[in-house]
């Protein structure tokens, strides 16, 4: 088994094998498949979520092209920007208390947030799926131990964990990667149990099924069978956890920044830090320094949550909108994951 196989799950894994339907291969992709499957409100929510998320990702990727200035730029050829300037033609969203351009920092901030999301999701998936496979496959004391540890860690409020990790990783000082890793790793720790649970449950179920035996008779390796079948079945629920994982990562990064464990303004742009620095502005009638980074956090998190919410609906036959529910052949086990089941975010 290579890690390549595993990481591919969230993005391009094959469609769940129980689900019928014909068409081009891309229609079977997770999310794409679900968009087709959905109707009405659910489709609206899913598409809205996709659009918001796509905008977030595009802004992050193309930040150097979109942002009028650098995130720590204080002056251009015409001189210094000045602090707390109201929105104008030069500075659409005004400038911050430190004299930075708000629009630029909001745009560059998307990049920081996206990095946190990517690191958090990638590492959670790798660790969670690996542990789930091992635990479910081998069983025994290792399995029991991992289940207990997973349950315990699952109960740990993620922001608190993030604070502790921020102290460990950066001692409170915040280089760009220090801040990103603190947020991403704490989210990883909290979300690993979720991937672990789903994958382990699948492994245990499949291990008991007859085709595993038959495959073995045919000489196919154990690991190959396991990974293939387990991962296929898990693609139903994994995209959902991924979206929750992502929105939680954004909110935790912002929470850290707000508590003063954020990233220094010259190292990278970070929405939570900007919000914290704008607290005094708000009470003095300077609204633009708080509003835009705040909205950016809300919209980014909301995009992910909308996606997660509608994916959850579609995964749960009871909640799937009635019109099309009949099209899905074969009852899927109700293993819907609660979006934000503990939701210990900000």
């Amino acid at each position: 088994m290579t890690s390549g196989e595993i990481t591919s799950v969230g993005t391009a894994g094959a469609a769940p094998e129980h689900v019928g339907g014909r068409g081009a291969w891309f229609k079977k992709l997770p999310v794409v498949h679900q968009v087709r499957q959905s109707v009405g409100l659910q489709r609206g929510m899913l598409i809205a979520g996709l659009v918001l998320t796509a905008v977030f990702v595009l802004v992050a990727v193309f930040a150097p092209l979109l942002a009028p200035y650098g995130w720590s730029q204080l002056r251009d050829l015409d001189g210094a920007f000045g602090a707390q300037q109201p929105p104008s033609a030069e500075h659409w969203f005004g400038t911050t208390v430190g004299g930075y351009d708000v629009l630029s920092r909001v745009i560059w901030g998307a990049r920081t947030a996206l990095l946190v999301v990517l690191v958090a999701v990638a590492s959670s998936i790798v660790v969670g799926v690996l542990l789930g496979l091992v635990s479910g496959y081998f069983g025994g004391w290792l399995d029991r131990l991992l289940v207990v540890v997973a349950d315990a860690i699952y109960a740990f409020p993620s922001l608190l964990l993030a604070i502790l990790l921020a102290i460990v990783i950066s001692g409170g000082q915040s280089s760009m990667w220090g801040g990103i890793l603190a947020a991403a790793l704490s989210i990883t720790v909290v979300f690993v149990p979720q991937y672990f649970r789903v994958v382990r449950a699948e492994v245990v179920r499949i291990k008991a099924e007859a085709f595993v035996d038959s495959a073995r008779v045919l000489g196919t390796g154990h690991w190959r069978i396991m990974t293939r079948h387990v991962l296929r079945n898990s693609t139903r629920t994994l995209p959902l956890i991924v979206t929750l994982n992502a929105s939680e990562a954004i909110l935790t990064l912002a929470g850290l920044g707000f508590l003063g464990f954020g990233i220094e303004p010259t190292a990278a742009a970070e929405w939570g830090y900007d919000l914290q620095r704008s607290l005094a502005d708000v009470t003095s009638g300077i609204w633009w320094t708080a509003l835009f980074p705040g909205l950016a956090i809300v919209l980014a998190a909301m995009g992910m949550t909308l996606m997660g919410e509608s994916l959850n609906d579609l995964a749960d036959p009871r909640l799937r909108s009635r019109a099309r529910s009949g099209q899905v052949s074969g009852a899927v086990a109700a293993t819907a994951v609660e979006p934000n089941p503990k939701g210990d975010d900000a």
Binding site: L275, T305, E309, A346
Partner: peptide, 15 residues
């Protein structure tokens, strides 16, 4: 509802 839990509590508090 989604807006309520996508909004960081400190931003909601600020507003």
């Amino acid at each position: 509802a989604i807006l309520a839990y996508a909004t960081p509590v400190f931003f909601a508090g600020l507003i």
